[in-house]
């Protein structure tokens, strides 16, 4: 649906977006991730036709965003950063204005506005001036505006920023619901958001693409081996060797533990195996008292930090994969 090919965008000599390529499939919700200033917003501005690209090209449903700008802009619903709205208008007046500018036929306008107002839960705010709305409701007006013309593509720049936790959940659910039929690009630097809403994640850093895949794939690709932390009471000194005998266990390290008669182990396992049940059975069989056992897999958060460390230059995705 969206095809981005070697996109470059400079501000003066500074490359805000430096040779980025990726595709977004129809019906996919893509999480666009990166630290502040990584080039997320700039990329979105080029997709929506606000900035022309310096190099490379973007097509939406096969149409080039610079050559057929009017047509691609008609296919996109856009919520820019910070949700700019006309504060002197009421919610209804604002949506009506957007419908007019978007040239939605008069006969359909009422129906479209009503549908969007219901989807975003703005029924009781229609007559209120936007200046009097809370941040959460303004965000909903922004979303209603972006979807008013029933676009195929939604480009949302940090749609949940500045919302309280309840509102964040509501907006996420809304985006999930929309994502069932629309192609969505959603930028964020909040990681749980990506895991909660997105089918796929693209991480950019210093204008370069550093990772591309589903949240699971990224975890898989960038994680070290999962590590199990085990605490047992009453185990003998050779317990480590017995643990090592379990299928799937690769290394066992004894750790310091201040409690009397308690041993603690760090057990590294293969990336796909999870020998926790076998460990439990071993403990029962040997009469050790199991005090604790946790398996830790590297979170998306630490992958993100690993990929976007400020002091290190960005490594393009090809090299990471190789």
């Amino acid at each position: 649906m969206i095809h981005i090919e070697h996109l470059k965008k400079y501000y003066g000599n500074f490359p805000a977006v430096d040779d980025i390529s990726f595709d977004v499939a129809r019906g996919e919700i893509l999480g666009f991730l990166g630290p502040n200033g990584a080039g997320k917003t700039t990329t979105m501005k080029v997709i929506t036709g606000f900035y022309p690209p310096n190099e490379g090209r973007i097509t939406i449903d096969g149409r080039d965003v610079t050559e057929e700008s009017l047509k691609t802009r008609a296919m996109i619903g856009y919520l820019p950063e910070n949700t700019p709205l006309y504060h002197d208008l009421t919610v209804y007046e604002y949506l009506k204005h957007i419908a007019d500018v978007r040239q939605i036929p008069n006969g359909e306008q009422k129906h479209r506005i009503r549908t969007m107002v219901e989807v975003t839960g703005l029924q009781h705010r229609l007559g209120q001036p936007i200046s009097k709305l809370s941040k959460g409701f303004r965000q909903r007006v922004g979303l209603a505006q972006a979807m008013l013309h029933d676009p195929k593509v939604l480009v949302l720049d940090e749609p949940t920023i500045g919302l309280d936790p309840n509102q964040i959940v509501e907006i996420r659910d809304l985006i999930r619901k929309l994502g069932e039929e629309k192609t969505v690009i959603l930028s964020t630097h909040i990681l749980p958001e990506v895991q909660a809403t997105c089918d796929r994640v693209v991480i950019i850093h210093q204008g370069k693409l550093v990772a591309d895949g589903t949240p699971e794939q990224l975890q898989h690709r960038f994680q070290g081996r999962p590590v199990i932390t085990l605490q047992v009471h009453g185990a003998p000194d050779d317990a480590g060797e017995k643990l090592l005998a379990i299928a799937g266990v690769e290394t066992v390290d004894r750790e310091q533990n201040s409690e009397a008669n308690v041993k603690q182990f760090q057990i590294a396992t293969g990336t796909t195996s999870d020998p926790r049940s076998d460990i439990f059975r071993l403990c029962v069989q040997q009469g050790w008292t199991l005090l604790g056992m946790t398996r830790r897999v590297e979170s998306l958060e630490s992958i993100f930090r690993q990929l976007t460390r400020r002091d290190e230059p960005a490594v393009p995705v090809e090299e990471v994969a190789a």
């Binding site: 606000f50 802009r73 820019p80 700019p84 006309y86 500018v101 978007r102 505006q145």
Partner: peptide, 14 residues
Amino acid sequence: KSGTLELLVTMPVR
């Protein structure tokens, strides 16, 4: 300044 220009000109308008 308020950012509404961006929204306005990314709609299908000349």
